[in-house]
Simulated scan of single mutants.
Amino acid sequence: MASAASTSAAASRTRMNIGQVLDVLRPDFPGITIPKIRFLEDKGLIKPERTPAGYRKFSHDDVERLRYVLRMQRDHYLPLKVIGEHLDAIDRGLEPPPIEAVVPTVPQVALSSDGLPSPESFARRSDVRLSRRELLKIAEVSEELLGQLEQFGLISARPGTGHYDTDALVIARTARELADFGFEPRHLRAFKTSADREVGLVEQVVAPLKRGRDAAAQARAEEAVSEIAALSVRLHATLVKKGLQGA
């Protein structure tokens, strides 16, 4: 029977393909994708082995390194440059600097990538209020990118307050991630136009319910909006997936 030490050594020598790495990381990081892993490799944060045919092979250490990068991004909002400095220190046998909170912590539920939105996610209202400086810091976007997102109507501050909510944060972070693939804010106008059409359709369907004057009618209208919105997003996402698979 193999000893625990030999079993551990064998596990450390095991190499995984990129799909297996996704399976290992997704329970803790549901939003991880193959393009994200490739992007982190391009930035030099991980260096998996390559087979003669060019396929990536990840070691246990590679996976733990990825886990560290993703945790620092998610829990501490550190930019990749700073995370790279931490990894360099670790590689040289040093301790990375202590992590101190430098910005307010946004509830994880506001940023979780838990698959397709549920009706509850549309009904949920957040009272988080972020200043412009906090939004730039947490979303890791430049003033120029945020200005363009506002110019094209994708983000706006709450009327009368100048603060931004978690929807603005998610949009800004998503736009920044799309920028890594070459998307510019002007390209995202199509998403806004599509969303506006879906909103108009939902409002048209629930208009009869909203005419009720009693509290019960209003509650039914709000519930219907949440359910229809979740269903429309599910349909939209599935149609996009189907279209890409057939491309």
Rank of each mutant, 00 (worst) to 15 (best):
S3G: 02
T7R: 11
S8K: 05
A9Q: 14
A10F: 05
S12K: 13
R13M: 15
T14W: 09
M16H: 14
N17F: 12
I18M: 07
P27T: 03
P27L: 03
D28A: 15
P30W: 02
R38L: 12
P48K: 06
E49Y: 08
R50S: 09
A53R: 13
G54K: 12
R56V: 00
K57T: 01
K57V: 01
H60A: 14
E64Q: 12
E64Y: 03
Y68F: 15
H76G: 05
I83G: 03
G84I: 02
L87C: 09
D88L: 09
I90D: 06
E100I: 10
V103E: 06
T105K: 10
V109H: 04
A110V: 09
G115K: 03
G115S: 13
L116H: 01
P117H: 05
P119C: 12
A123Q: 02
R129L: 11
R132K: 11
R133N: 14
R133W: 07
L136P: 00
K137S: 07
I138W: 05
E144H: 03
L145Q: 04
L146P: 00
L146Y: 01
L149N: 01
P159K: 15
G160N: 14
T161L: 12
T161C: 07
G162H: 08
Y164W: 04
Y164I: 00
T166N: 12
L169W: 00
V170K: 09
I171H: 01
R176G: 09
E177Q: 03
L178Y: 02
L178W: 04
L178F: 02
G182L: 06
F183V: 01
H187A: 08
K192I: 04
S194H: 07
S194P: 06
A195Y: 01
A195W: 04
R197N: 05
E198I: 14
V202S: 06
V206Y: 08
V206C: 10
A207D: 15
A207L: 08
A207N: 10
L209D: 13
L209Y: 08
D214K: 13
A215I: 10
A216F: 15
A217N: 10
Q218R: 10
E222P: 00
S226G: 12
A229N: 05
A229H: 00
L231D: 11
L231S: 13
V233E: 08
R234H: 08
L235G: 00
H236T: 05
T238I: 11
L239V: 12
K242W: 15
K242V: 06
Q245F: 15
Q245L: 15
